[in-house]
Write a protein that binds this DNA or RNA. Structure first.
Lengths: 329, 329
DNA sequence: TTGAAAGCGCTAACAT
DNA sequence: ATGTTAGCGCTTTCAA
């Protein structure tokens, strides 16, 4: 593998000139440029990012922190991040924490070690204190989950309003006995979605029924199955369920199906996220769409601006209720 | 951010000694080591990977090429790759090609530019010629899809045998009219799975029925839906379907459900991959399990060995037929 | 328009 | 056991 020295020698110029050609610096005469370009081709030269990165003290890598790569919710966001990053000559380092603090530490160190220029965190279980420490020296953007009242910029949706819309939809359909399958309320989005749920109920004078609120540990399919099993054990069975994630809703739907009940006749169900799969269930799933791709693009844009030293402001994007078979007979 | 110089100065030693401490070199006296460690703590020093990487001319990054991050099949493989990589002080650069040659080029350049030390390619649509060019100077491992008779090391399963097992299972159940939803046969795995399908049929003297073989462009849910629609238009309707991917099978299942038919009574169905979701459908999906996590671990291990200069041999892992409701009344 | 040279932060060969 | 020093490949300032 040739280096810049050899190219310079072959072209009969200095390394500085080669560098100028590489970086499209205008102050190179057309003839010189041609000579250098030919030398580059002849030697099959590819500039080393290792040297360039050290010199520029940047890695042009964005670290993306997600709890689990298996959750389809993140796929589209990552798509958006990656497309935006690539368009700006950045790349992403996808890091799965499994909500494991040790893992998290490894990743945080990558930023400290200059292996990444900044972080987009989508992990609700992230150690906020450490994140703030890191933020003193490194650009950080929160995506989806954020720190209410904190100083870290974020891009997200209005979870409370979205949940309110979802539950109101069920109420309008005539449901009064509406269960909530929520995730762990140590997460902000979980608290917000519960607030939206309760707000809708209160607006229509429907009492909140503790027995119908179930909190899961994770948001995998199996957690939805478990939650639904529990709900079937309650004294009075609810007639509708709002789950704060499609994966949970799909698990719940599975359990309802297993029991031979009909959706939506016996039990209506609303999910959250509009993952691809939510359209393949039987019946198809009513859900709250988040603009995931856009969220990713915005987050990446914010982070790159932040790296450049431009101040960025938090953004709240719109959601949309997608009404499908699981609430429509 | 402090650098190694400042640490050396603070500790009253040379940079070489600091480097020795950082790299756990034994030839440092306990007292000196302590002084250095204190200086590191005091200055909050973190070694820069930029400098280290340039010096060692390595990036300790593995480039992982996948067609689409949304396909759950890859999630588990990536998990395996990442865990193995991290355990060896490597990290992964997840690159989605969308089977777009331009994207691919960007990623290939990252290796040429030393931004990654090697490649694990899982993209069936990868440009093999370019891959071989790259392989002259850089370690490359193929995962899942490979180049039959080629020289690039791979880890995969025996697709033909797996398909044979799946179809034989249907035949043993009494099916004779078995459709095949295959992906594009420009892919090796598609050709192999078709061969397995035909082999099973031939073994039981069942003629191959062209009308019952459908080739999709991609392997998304929607492709499965389309395929099933087409199969419903054939003169004689098949009584069973073997789809070469769970996503296709799930799409097909959806279409069967929409038409009000029962699975497996009216139509049995077998998928391939055992993605998480295949257990959440109604009915649950009979499928061929690939050891995806292990595949990822093995691929990463092979690549890291290859980077070290160790010769690696291709590996074929075992598959397993998982019989569930979609073929069991 | 071009070149010389310093230096980004680190490691390792060599010297002591 | 420790220090000196060259150099990894590049960009950029300064000088010509």
């Amino acid at each position: 593998m040739a280096n810049i020295q050899q190219v310079a020698q072959k072209a009969g110029v200095s390394v500085a000139t080669v560098s100028r050609v590489l970086n499209n610096n205008t102050t190179v005469s057309p003839e010189t440029r041609l000579r250098v370009e030919n030398a580059i081709k002849d030697l099959n030269y590819e500039p080393s990012m290792l040297g360039r990165n050290l010199r520029n003290s940047e890695s042009r890598l964005l670290l993306v922190l997600i709890p689990s790569i298996s959750n389809p919710f993140y796929s589209e966001i990552i798509n958006g991040i990656q497309n935006t990053a690539i368009a700006n000559n950045y790349n992403i380092l996808l890091c799965e924490t499994d909500s494991n603090p040790e893992r998290e530490n490894i990743y945080f160190n990558m930023v400290k070690n200059k292996l990444a220029d900044g972080i987009i965190s989508m992990d609700p279980a992230v150690n906020m204190q450490k994140l703030y420490e890191l933020a003193e020296n490194h650009p950080i953007i929160l995506c989806s989950e954020y720190d209410e009242g904190g100083s870290l910029p974020y891009v997200t949706i209005d979870s409370e309003l979205a949940a309110y819309h979802a539950v109101k939809h069920l109420i309008k359909l005539g449901h009064k006995n509406i269960a909530l399958i929520n995730s762990d309320e140590k997460f902000l989005y979980a608290r917000q979605r519960r607030a939206g749920y309760e707000k809708a109920l209160k607006e229509f004078d429907i009492p909140v029924h503790k027995e119908w609120i179930y909190n899961t540990i994770h948001v995998d399919f199996q957690d939805g199955v478990q939650a639904m099993r529990k709900l079937f054990q309650s004294n009075e069975r609810p007639s509708a369920v709002f789950a704060v994630s499609d994966t949970l809703a799909i698990g719940a739907l599975k359990e309802i199906n297993v029991r031979g009940l009909k959706v939506p006749e016996d039990m209506a169900i609303v999910g959250f996220d509009k993952i691809n799969f939510s359209n393949m269930t039987n019946p198809t799933l009513t859900t709250v769409a988040q603009p995931m791709y856009e969220m990713g693009c915005v987050a990446a844009g914010m982070l790159m601006n932040s790296i450049k030293g431009i101040r960025v402001d938090s953004i709240i994007l719109d959601h949309e209720l997608i009404i499908r078979e699981s609430t429509m007979g």
